[in-house]
Each structure stands twice: as C-alpha cells, then as structure tokens.
Design a binder for these strands. Structure first.
Length: 365
DNA sequence: GATACGTGGTG
DNA sequence: TCACCAAGTAT
C-alpha cells in the first residue's frame, strides 16, 4: 500500500508527514475550492465553522443516491423533505403515499426499506439515528456504503466510504488491474489507508466528488486532478481502461400484456403489486406474466381492444415489450382483479415508469 | 459469489 | 439502436 510515489512528490510528505495524509490534505484543499452545492450538503466552509448536517437529510439523500444520479435525485429529495420534514413525519406516513412519491425513481425496495428504517428509528431509537457505523448498518436498507456515508457525513466519524466513484479513483490511483467485483476488497483497503482522521465527512464527499466530476468513467479530466502527481494510472497511461470489470450478460427480451380498463365514470382499474419482486409494492396496471409468450389474463370481462404499437422498457436484467389493451366497462361490473380508482384521484405520476409508458401509449401520446 | 432489482443519460 | 454507467442492498 505504501507506494513510494505517494510520498516522493507531495509537500506534506516532504515536511515529514506520511504521504497518505498529504494526499488527503491535497484532496480536502481541492474540495474546499470545488465542492458542488447540493440540497443535502453543508458547504465545507460552513462545516468547518461548526454547522452540523441533519442526519435525516443525509440518510434520505444517500438512500436516493444509491445507483442513481444527482440530477435524478434532486426533485425527489425536495418533494420528500417538503412533505416529510423529519424522520418521525416519514415514519407516520402511509405506505401508499410514500410508494407513490418514490414512483419513477426506481429500485423500489429502497422505498419499502426507507419506511421500515424510518419506523425503526422512530420506535426503537426515539427518532434519533444511531451515531455509529454498526448501529446504522443494522437498519433496513442501510448497507456498508450507506452506513459509512452517514457515519462520516452526518456525524464526522472516520468511516471509510467505498462507492463506485471511490472504486474507480482507487483503481486508477494504484493502477490496479484486477477486475471488479473481485477487486472490491483490495480497493476498499486502499481507500481505508487514505482516510484521514481530520474532516472525515468532507473527505468522504470529496473523494466521491472527485470521481463524479474529474476522475470520471469516460474522458477523465486529469489536468484538473489534485492527485495527478501521485496517480499510477496517469503515469502508465491506463486511466481509460480502469477499473476493469467482468463482462455483463446480455439482456433477454420478454413480452407481456397490460390491461387498461376504464369505467364509464372515468375510473381506472389498477392494482397494488405484491411486496416482493419487481416493482414490489407499486401501483400498476393488471397484466399477464412477462415471458417469451404471455397468456391472456384480462382482469375484468369486457370487449378488449389492442392499442397499435408496443410500450418498450428496459429493466436491470431484461428488455420488456408490452402490448396494451383497453376497454370501457359499465359502472356495476365487478373486476376479477384490482380496484377502480376514481378519475380525480388517479395520477399517472404515481406509477412506475413502465406503467406510465403503457398509459401514454393508450392515450395516444 | 451470483443474482434480482429501475431509470435516465450518454457515446 | 444499444451497451454502459450512476453516492448499493438484500438474499
């Protein structure tokens, strides 16, 4: 781990401190000048002046940011913090309201675990988040990354935070060619050995910001990097090919049928999907199974018409081509599955994206 | 360790 | 069009 290059070229090393401290300090200097302003972030100057982050906002942002970009998260973060300003407010919310508010953001298990976690904090911890890595890790939806991030950012504990950005930065800094996920423990050890005791919260955010804005997956901007002089991949010219990753499987294509039934008073036939599995707990159109050759499964007796075209959508591990069928039914006909939702209560924004696409196709948009 | 789990942006 | 990628977790 103690690469000679780490110490040979940095001022702190020359002044007698270990090279790793020099690297952390260089990065914090960079962060003080280049930290992005984000709705959940306390700017470095304010942090140094003693302003503390709200653990609820840190936790909420970190859950939303899992596998999700900053621009996608921003409006959802504003919506959640406006509607539920504290963890106790969130804990008291209805499941359906939270799932509807999360609709469109993806990875819906996050929303289910978000509520479980808020309720655990409210009922088992008096509405206060546990202030330790282990305590945080024990909560639903909080894994090693998020426990470290909240510990560091909210409580300024010297936790090592390893996300995709940090993996990439470490792989390049040390010119590590072992492919992910095999390299994860190695990269984690590298990250741990760099984590400073001073300002761990700012440092955690700084490494991730570096990865997000300078040490990017494609076209890294090495000319602006505070760690360029210490970067082994820069020396070797291998930045563009790191980190190595084991190749992913091709996605198969599945087919399905979505049934959009409208009652004469304008109500729509919807159903809440089972808690487990794909789109678990979300509102959606009744439908067939998604497979090579789906079987008809109309949720109500009616004269169904097939909408021309298909709704196409790609999930994490397969492509979906959805045939959309519509019908109009009388007021007194009971459905075999699902529940009619009054027209003035129904908002397509409450649906996951694939279901919105089916709705758009049916409406001719 | 491998797999399931969303979505939108990008080259 | 298409594969890759993003502040991962649960099983």
């Amino acid at each position: 781990m103690s690469d000679a290059r780490d110490t040979s070229c940095d001022p702190a090393g020359a002044s007698g401190q270990p090279g790793r401290v020099g690297l952390a300090s260089d990065l914090l200097d960079w962060y003080d000048r280049h930290a992005r302003a984000l709705p959940w972030r306390i700017p470095p100057l304010a942090r140094v002046a003693g302003v503390k982050p709200d653990p609820y906002r840190v936790w909420l942002s970190e859950i939303m940011l899992q596998q999700t970009t900053v621009p996608a998260v921003k409006p959802y973060f504003e919506k959640f913090t406006t509607r539920w300003p504290t963890v106790s407010d969130l804990a008291a919310a209805e499941d359906a309201d939270v799932m509807a508010a999360w609709a469109g953001l993806g990875y819906y298990a996050r929303a289910r675990n978000l509520l479980k976690c808020a309720r655990a904090v409210a009922s088992d911890h008096g509405g206060i988040f546990p202030q330790s890595y282990e305590g945080l890790l024990s909560l639903p939806g909080i894994g090693p990354y998020t426990a470290g991030a909240v510990a560091a950012i909210a409580f300024d504990l010297p936790a090592t935070v390893v996300d995709g950005n940090v993996e990439r930065v470490m792989a390049r800094l040390h010119d590590e060619h072992t492919p992910l996920p095999e390299a994860k423990p190695i990269l984690t050890e590298m990250a741990a050995s760099l984590t400073p005791q001073a300002r761990p919260g700012d440092y955690a955010q700084a490494v991730m910001d570096l990865g997000a804005t300078v040490c990017t997956p494609r076209n890294p901007v090495c000319g602006l990097c505070p760690w360029r002089r210490s970067c082994a991949a820069w020396d070797a010219g291998t930045m563009a090919e790191l980190p190595k990753k084991t190749p992913k499987k091709r996605k198969p294509t599945r087919h399905g049928i979505a049934y959009l039934a409208r009652r004469i008073d304008g109500a729509w036939l919807l159903e809440t999907r089972p808690e487990k599995g794909l789109l678990g707990g979300m509102l959606g159109w009744p439908g067939s199974e998604w497979s090579d050759d789906p079987q008809e499964a109309p949720p109500i007796r009616a004269e169904w018409k097939t909408v021309p075209g298909e709704a196409r959508h790609t999930f994490t591990h397969f492509h979906l081509r959805l045939t959309v069928k519509t019908c109009l039914v009388p007021f007194d006909r009971p459905p075999e599955r699902g529940t009619f939702v009054e027209a003035d209560t129904f908002d397509p924004e409450d649906l996951p994206t694939v279901m919105r696409k089916a709705f758009s196709l049916a409406r001719g948009g």
